[in-house]
């Protein structure tokens, strides 16, 4: 148990230090160049009521799940 806590603290410190030691990267796409990236059509899940329903509909009829757009619950499958 004690070893787990030590490992956990070391891991957190390593991640934090690694992240803090990274030099700021100059973005190769400037903020004023992101007009198209910000367009709603660049997000296939932009209407969550629509995409969440589709995801639930597929998950209740298939044997796989995960790595999609939504987290559902319940069955509603019959």
């Amino acid at each position: 148990m004690k070893m787990n806590i030590v490992r956990y603290i070391i891991a957190v410190l390593v991640i934090t230090q690694a992240a803090c030691s990274v030099k700021p990267i100059e973005p190769w796409v400037a903020p004023y160049e992101r007009e198209h990236l910000a367009d709603p059509i660049m997000d296939v899940y932009r209407d969550t009521v629509f995409s969440d329903y589709r995801q639930h509909m597929y998950e209740t009829r298939e044997g796989s799940r995960g790595a999609g757009s939504a987290q559902g619950s319940g069955c509603g499958c019959n």
Partner: peptide, 24 residues
């Protein structure tokens, strides 16, 4: 375990395409 990738591209005809793949 599920792993998914997605690529989304804007086209200068006011259009966008998105291609996704998931392995479970």
């Amino acid at each position: 375990q599920a792993t998914g990738i997605r690529a989304t591209k804007y086209w200068n005809i006011r259009a966008a395409t998105s291609l996704g793949y998931r392995y479970f």
